[in-house]
Design a protein around this nucleic acid. Structure first.
Length: 288
DNA sequence: ACAATATCCTGCGAGC
DNA sequence: TGCTCGCAGGATATTG
């Protein structure tokens, strides 16, 4: 499941190869992956376009086209996006093949069938994709501690589901939410409005750290559907995970073992001794 | 407005 | 062995 670090890795690699490339042909194998506009208009609109830039918004990849429109891809749980020589034998579950004028093809693959793609105008980025509703980018300079606090202001829900909410903060998924909460020594079921100032500071720093490290190590390939980069290579952050999918294994910070629990309907991994659910009783637990 | 839950989809592991 | 069942999980819709 590609999250911010994985999609950011895809973005950077893509940027290095597709800028200025013209799309010479589009083969839509599975029309259901196109959510906007209708499949025919998608193929006609994409064909002949030149790619000028690649951006990321939360877990969306946005390929800017010279027309001013954008080709947007969301990989959801198991989507893969490859850049490979044209004519490379196609794997199973290929949804879309886009030929470029450099003798390469961009391939969208997805076993589960939840990945989705769009061709949108500048205006439709907000009306169709709701980009304007996305929370702040946690690795951007604008994501200050004050910004982080404002996103959690008066929120009463459990902290982990809030971290997963793309409208609260953009780009965090199940892997990095668990890693950030472990690093901050916070139980995922803690209510946001019960977090103390020191806890909030720890969480803010931890979110940035785990995402930065994830990017540095080119993402995590430990999950179902194995994340791969545009060349088909794995990331390396799975070797550094402290809790995610490490149930039964030794905690990296104490003598205990990692456990798996359910939080908000999601599999969640914690060290029960490092991450206690109780609210600290000492002073400083001012509500937010 | 917010919180909580169901739904989508397919492969896979557990259990019988 | 082969079947069923439940789970995985990001985004979205729905319900409270």
């Amino acid at each position: 499941m590609p999250e911010l670090p994985e999609v950011e890795t895809l973005r950077r690699d893509l940027l290095s190869v597709v800028c200025g490339r013209r799309i010479t042909a589009v083969t839509l194998v599975e029309p259901l992956v196109v959510k906007h506009p209708d499949p025919g208009d998608f193929v006609r609109g994409l064909t002949g376009q030149t790619i000028d830039d690649v951006e990321r918004h939360a877990k969306y990849l946005q390929l800017h086209l010279r027309s001013g429109s954008s080709w947007v891809v969301h990989l959801m749980l198991e989507g893969q996006f490859f850049y490979q020589p044209s004519g490379t034998a196609l794997a199973s579950d290929i949804k879309l093949v886009v030929q470029l004028d450099d003798g390469h093809q961009l391939v969208l693959r997805d076993v589960v069938g939840l990945a989705r793609t769009f061709l949108v105008t500048e205006e439709e980025l907000d009306t169709v994709l709701k980009f304007d509703a996305l929370g702040p980018e946690p690795l951007e300079p604008g994501f200050t501690y004050a910004c982080f606090l404002s996103r959690l202001h008066r929120r009463t829900g459990m902290i982990k589901p809030l971290l997963l909410d793309q409208k609260v903060i953009a780009g965090i998924g199940n892997v990095y939410a668990d890693e950030a909460l472990f690093r901050a020594r916070l139980h995922p079921k803690r209510k946001a409005n019960t977090l103390t100032e020191s806890e909030l500071k720890r969480l803010y720093a931890s979110i940035r750290e785990v995402l930065q490290e994830g990017v540095q190590h080119r993402g995590t390939s430990a999950t179902r559907g194995l994340y791969r980069d545009i060349w088909g290579q794995k990331g390396h952050y799975q070797d550094r995970l402290a809790v995610f999918r490490r149930q039964g294994k030794a905690c990296t910070g104490c003598q205990g073992n990692v456990e798996q629990i359910q939080v908000g309907g999601r599999a969640t991994f914690i060290c029960p001794s490092c991450q206690v659910e109780a609210v600290p009783s000492a002073a400083g637990a001012r509500g937010r």
